[in-house]
Write a protein that binds this DNA or RNA. Sequence first.
DNA 1: GTACGCCTTCCACTCGGATGGAATGTCAAG
DNA 2: CTTGACATTCCATCCGAGTGGAAGGCGTAC
Lengths: 138, 138
Amino acid sequence: MRIGELAARLGVNPKTIRFYEARGLIPDPVRLPSGYRDYGPEDESRLAFIKTAQRLGLSLDEIGEILAFKERGERPCSYVLSVLDAQLSDIDRRIGELVRLRAELVTLKDRADQLLSGDACYCGIVEHAGRMSQMITR
Amino acid sequence: MRIGELAARLGVNPKTIRFYEARGLIPDPVRLPSGYRDYGPEDESRLAFIKTAQRLGLSLDEIGEILAFKERGERPCSYVLSVLDAQLSDIDRRIGELVRLRAELVTLKDRADQLLSGDACYCGIVEHAGRMSQMITR
DNA sequence: GTACGCCTTCCACTCGGATGGAATGTCAAG
DNA sequence: CTTGACATTCCATCCGAGTGGAAGGCGTAC
């Protein structure tokens, strides 16, 4: 399949695929007589892997390292594991923080709703934002 | 306190503080007779808030909008509420994604641990990554 | 009084991750 | 045989979030 189709299947820009090729993340593909890149299913799954890993928070360099291990037939396990461990604890931290921020925003919004329906209000939301800041950064 | 001390307290580069000022995220500070910026505790907590929000994945623009509520001292209008709502649902979405990714990472890591302790492992983790990809993107 | 560290402004550059656009080539359908 | 969609290369630009460096001012310690 040509680059446009591959890109469409994965929901990415064809330029992105060429960009990954230039970065060495995907191998130089076979070319059709026309010079067009010709991709197969392995390319699709490789690209899917890249996109997944990216969603997991890995940088293109990290992904490249993992793929390179695979290329060389080496055991990337411990490296991958350490990356995974780091990602995991980072995610835990972020979830905790988001949950806290969420609670604060909800409170803030509730106040705002009340104030909207109430009369004679300037902006209690403002004072609350101050408290929010303290709570969040506590 | 001067910019260097404030920066040190927060573990950021003084340039970053000037950058935030230029972006309108923090108010133009009082100046000492020397022309040096002079910061107080409110500046420190505001900066701390920015950094926290940033760790949570908010962009500087989003943070700016939130801080602008405070600045403008406006009544909570529907625009403000809609921004808050957007922020909230975005946070919910991100929490959901992170929770899912966390579960997948744990599974992946468990597999990897097994494979590591077993013998004759090239890199099952990579092959499992393919399955992982399916699981996550399901 | 000069050395040294911190401060000022301004402009340019970095970095990761793409994207845009120009100029040109390929190919199937009308 | 031309039109249109898609492809190619190469170079430039964008975005967010800073960071670097030059040229010069301030302030305290020796």
